[in-house]
């Protein structure tokens, strides 16, 4: 079953990448255009998110009727409902970086295949940022500070 699951994940990543390329969201100028509500606003991202949330919520309705996933033993869906400082602070930092660059993780990783240097620089910095978070979290755990989120 493992090869089936890994191949399925490859296909789903490809589907996601095709969607991103078709949606126009690989272009940081259009993403920043969406965030530029006080300037020349570009509503494209509303259409992307609208299409994506509509289809995925239909999928989620189906998921709620399943006792387990088709290729796995159990669902791994977050159950944490607590809105805390980490969620808000982390999302705010992400939003600042998103606004500065016009890149979020999906389009940036997909755009690596264009072989453009600025994309590689952004993704490398993003990996450093993720690693920094992991190191701080591990240090916090050693110092006895409980880490609630994964």
């Amino acid at each position: 079953m493992a090869p089936v699951r890994i191949l399925a994940a490859l296909g789903l990543g490809l589907l996601f990448g095709l969607g991103l390329a078709l949606s126009g969201m690989l272009d940081p100028a259009r993403v920043r255009g969406f965030l530029d509500v006080f300037g020349a606003w570009d509503p494209s991202l509303v259409f992307v998110l609208g299409g994506a949330v509509t289809v995925s919520s239909l999928g989620y309705q189906l998921v709620r009727r399943l006792s387990k996933p088709a290729l796995a033993e159990s669902f791994q869906i977050p159950t944490n409902r607590r809105v805390d400082g980490k969620l808000i602070g982390g999302s705010a930092l992400f939003g600042i970086g998103w606004g500065l660059s016009g890149f979020c993780p999906g389009p940036a990783v997909a755009a690596l295949s264009t072989g453009v240097l600025p994309v590689a620089v952004f993704v490398a910095a993003m990996l450093v940022g993720m690693t920094a978070h992991r190191v701080f979290t591990l240090r916090g755990a050693e110092a006895g500070i409980p880490a609630r989120d994964s």
Binding site: G95, C104, A111, V116, P118, V119, V123, A124, M126, G129
Partner: peptide, 30 residues
Amino acid sequence: PAMRIAASLPVLVVAGLLVGFGTRLGSGCT
């Protein structure tokens, strides 16, 4: 697909660090 990147390399480094750290701290992205 079209890609117009206005940010300079130093700005992209800062943005990448914020996006990487922020999405982990906030447990997710777009």
